[in-house]
């Protein structure tokens, strides 16, 4: 044993020094490299796992939403076309109604106008007659005062009136 110690210069102090060296290495590697890296790596794999499941559910939601959207779109289109046809029909009916109304109105207005015109015309004629008669009378009076016979007078009147008729 003594020969081994002397051959290899076994020295308990150096052995302890090397133990301390190694202890430092273990502590540093474990505390600052292995532990945090292992933690980080497991955390990262968890994150990736979560990300993958999230992505999967997201894709599912997306396709579901797309389906729903397309369905809603189809329904809306159908509804819109229904409404459109209905509105078209209604508009057609309304248009016809309005046309009818307008025609009636026009006819009515026309008729009214016609009667009014007729009335006006009649009135004007009557007025004219009256005025004419007055004029003729006054004129005749003026002539008569100058010595024309009543016979002539009335004949003239009648003639002039007839002329106006």
């Amino acid at each position: 044993m003594q020969s081994i110690i002397s051959t290899f210069h076994l020295d308990i102090k150096i052995l302890i020094a090397q133990l301390i060296n190694f202890a430092v290495v273990i502590w540093v590697l474990y505390r600052f490299a292995i532990k945090p890296l292992n933690k980080l790596m497991s955390e990262r794999s968890q994150t990736i796992e979560k990300g993958l499941t999230d992505a999967k559910s997201n894709a599912e939601t997306l396709s579901k939403t797309k389906e729903e959207y397309e369905k809603a779109l189809r329904e809306a289109q159908k509804e819109a076309s229904d409404i459109f046809t209905k509105a078209k029909k209604e508009a057609e009916v309304k248009k016809n109604e309005m046309l009818e109304d307008a025609k009636k109105e026009v006819a009515k207005t026309l008729a009214q106008g016609k009667t009014a015109l007729e009335e006006e015309k009649q009135k004007m004629l009557d007025d004219a007659k009256k005025e004419l008669a007055g004029l003729v009378t006054s004129a005749t009076e003026k002539v008569l005062t100058k010595g024309i016979s009543e016979k002539i007078d009335s004949s003239i009147i009648e003639a002039s009136v007839a002329h106006f008729k």
């Binding site: 290899f8 210069h9 076994l10 020295d11 150096i14 052995l15 302890i16 090397q18 133990l19 060296n21 190694f22």
Partner: peptide, 15 residues
Amino acid sequence: SGTADVNTTIALALC
């Protein structure tokens, strides 16, 4: 080399 000394290797082996 640290490992070319028996003191080191014995320390490690004891550990």
